[in-house]
Structure formats: C-alpha cells, structure tokens
Design a protein around this nucleic acid. Structure first.
Lengths: 168, 168
DNA sequence: GTCTATAGGACGATAGAC
DNA sequence: GTCTATCGTCCTATAGAC
C-alpha cells in the first residue's frame, strides 16, 4: 500500500470524524491533500473503495479496543466508549449496507471475536448481546432516548439480563 | 389537513417504501401527483416537513400494530414483522436525527407505550428491551448477521434473558 | 501521478406570472 | 394553487495533456 493510498484513507477518515459520512467527498479528500479530485482515481477505482478502506481501519481499531476486556461489562463499556468517541465512524461501520467484497478477509470476524468469546462461544447469546449493545449505542447516538434518561442504568439492566454480575 | 396535503404525504410514503429515504425528492413527489415540484411549497414549507408527515403516520401504524400484543414475545413478533414489511419506513422512523419539533405531540409516546406496559412500567427494562429489539431488527435489515444465521433463535435467547417464558 | 476541462447529472428552493 | 424559468450548489467520474 503506497504512501498516497494511506494518506487518502487518513484524509477520508478525518473528514468523516468531523462531519459524518456525508462529508466524505472526493473533492474534500483531494483538498485535504492539496491535490485535485481526479488524481484520486489513480489510487482508488471509486469512492466506495475509499470508504471501505476507512471501514477496515475502524474495524481493526474496534478489535483492539475490545481485546483486553475481561468481563461482559468491561466489554460493554469499551464498546460504548468507542462509539461515543467516534460516532460518525461507528455509524459508517455499523449502519447500512456493508461493502464486504471490498474488505480484507477476516476484519469483520476479528472485531466480533471478543464478544463471541464473552458469550462462551454460544452464537445466539453473542448475537443477542450484540443486538442489545448496538441498539443501546445507536439509539443514544441518534438522540432517541428521552433527555435525562439514565442510560447507565439501562445498560446495567440489559447486561444483568444477559448474565453479567452486577457491579456496585 | 387539506386533501392535497394528504396526497403529498401519501406519495412521499410510497416513494420511500419503494426506494428508501434517498428516493424521496420533491421532484419525485410532484411527478407522482402530476404537478411540478415548486407547487409543493404551497403546501409544505420544505422537504423536512414532508418527511415528518411520513414519520408521524408510520409511528401511528406501529402503535396500532403493537397494541394487541399480550406478551413480550407477541410484541417482539409484531415489532419485527412491521420492520420487515416496511424496511425503509422503519429506517426512516428509527434512524438518524428525529425532527421532533415537527411531529404531533404524543405520537412518539404512543408508539412506545405497548413496550413500556410489557416491561411492567420499569423504564430501564423497557429501554433495554427496546435496544435489543431495535438492534436485532436493524442488523437484520442491514444484512449484518452471517448468512444462514438463525435469527429466530437469537430473538428467543434475548427475549428469554429479559424474562419472557420460552415458547415450544 | 498530477493537472485542466468537462461531461452529465442531481437536488432544494425562490421569483413572479397567471 | 399551479405554472415556467432559473438560481445556486454540489456531486462522481472520464478524457487527454504533461
């Protein structure tokens, strides 16, 4: 992967962090690098490929962020923390259609692995917990809970239901 | 509410059902009614107001669809069924920023009421179950579960965790 | 690998006549 | 309440020179 290629993905990532997926345009990426938009097409076939590059990086980051969690509640805390620190990236990575064919093999699985382990290898439990965690995060990011709602309490309630020993 | 106003919302709704939110354009709405786009602005101040009209209708529909459920698993079944029958409308209603100031008072609460009741009035339980259900639905709609995943089983696992008596 | 020029299109919204 | 005309803006992507 050439240096320019990496710079392009970096610039794309920064744009998304700052203004959401909608701020990712080929012109804006080029501006950030001090070149013209058409030049980008010497490095990437199209915009979707750039986006996929950002998603791949983000999934690796999540895998790392979750790797050291040693309990379900630590996992949940780390998951939520990543989402709140990088709301636009989280959305890009976890909403809408995923361009799987443009992603390096195994990236998606690596991000999911810590959760599968925490679920004791039970796929159904892992999927149910994933749904709960993603639901909590995305509803929070989208401002869907009532103002003043105690989300920590909702998280604890859900995690307890899934067998996490409650912390005091 | 004038007839034209209702026709506009109906047309907008149909466009979204057919092609997602992205297919909702003032031009397309006008085309469907056999008029020109600028005429719409005599009935709605802007596009967001049209969108809000569709959301309000959809929330009422959900309230009705969930009203007759008499157990948590019936509620979940009805919730998932609505989402799968109207995936684009579900997304419009439950993703991204909600234009609350353009929605009739109480609509959001009415849609949420059946779930709050099923949770025995416990806000934290209601929010956790909502997050789980929304997570399951949106991950399914977005094709995020592995192909062949047994989603019925994941639903049962989650609902059981939240205290639903398992059905056989 | 960069550039200029441009194709080719979409969109929301306004002005002003009727 | 509808129309025509149009403004202003933004976008992805290609062709071809250097």
């Amino acid at each position: 992967m050439s240096e320019r290629t990496q710079q392009i993905i970096e610039a794309a990532r920064t744009l998304i962090e700052e203004g959401g997926s909608q701020s990712l345009t080929m012109r804006a990426v080029a501006d950030r690098l001090g070149i013209r938009a058409p030049s980008l097409y010497k490095h990437f076939p199209d915009k979707l490929a750039v986006e996929a590059g950002v998603i791949a990086i983000a999934m690796d980051e999540v895998a790392v962020a979750l790797a050291t969690a040693s309990s379900l509640s630590e996992l949940a805390t780390a998951y939520r923390a990543y989402a709140i620190e990088h709301p636009h990236i989280y959305r890009l990575m976890n909403s809408g259609p995923l361009p799987r064919h443009l992603l390096p093999a195994g990236v998606e699985d690596r991000a999911a692995l810590p959760l599968v382990r925490a679920a004791g290898g039970d796929e159904n439990v892992a999927r149910a917990i994933w749904a709960f965690a993603h639901g909590m995060v995305i509803l929070e990011l989208d401002g869907r809970f009532p103002p003043g709602a105690d989300l920590d309490a909702a998280w604890r309630t859900g995690l307890a239901a899934f067998g996490d020993p409650v912390q005091h």
